[in-house]
Amino acid sequence: MNAVIIVFPGTNRERDMAIALERASGRKPTMLFHRADSLPAGTDLVVLPGGFSHGDYLRCGAMAAQSPIMQAVKDFAARGGHVLGVCNGFQILTETGLLPGALLRNATLRFLSMDCHMRVERAGTPFTANWRQGDVFRAPMAHGDGNYFCDEETLARLNGENLVAFRYATPDGAITPAANRNGARDNIAGILSPNLRICGLMPHPEDLVDPLMGGEDGLPMFTSLVESLATA
């Protein structure tokens, strides 16, 4: 799998992502600065990592969505390419329109840094193949603007077409308000594009891929991608 991590000014979780991808694939991903206007030939996966692109001084991800490289990412996605956006990367995906909805300020009006649990709502995708439907896994979250919002029509479509990838849950899998720290609509933590090749989520599975750091709960996402894209 040839993975490319896009680095915007202010991106800060690109190394975490590279560690997770290398742990799953045995190959170092390529780091690509946002000024580039094309992706390397043979790119299998584009990753938009976490951070504060352009300081997030405008709406989170709004500036990065206008970066030169994003046209190439949109073209890549239009050709059926696989794209993962985590945290700020998810925000950028919604700002570019590659995924619907928006990430609002956390309902607590505070930055939230803690482990959360997510229930796998859609197994069998390139991002979730190594989980079973309903599995619960843990991951750190660290964001000020992770409160997923979309209108009724979009929500009905996401639910109707089974495009919600992950929901915030209790450790035993219950979808409760208390498990939904940032106030996301319908406890939505991550969503998929209709072709199941674009995924955005707020928490950081890339920061939980090593028992030494507290567990390997996040690793299945990356092994799923490696196995799915090895044959793609």
Partner: peptide
């Protein structure tokens, strides 16, 4: 307090 600080960025935090 610490729930407002990102303690895991960098992916190397062994004891939070």
């Amino acid at each position: 307090i610490w729930d407002q600080y990102d303690s895991t960025v960098g992916g190397q935090t062994v004891k939070r």
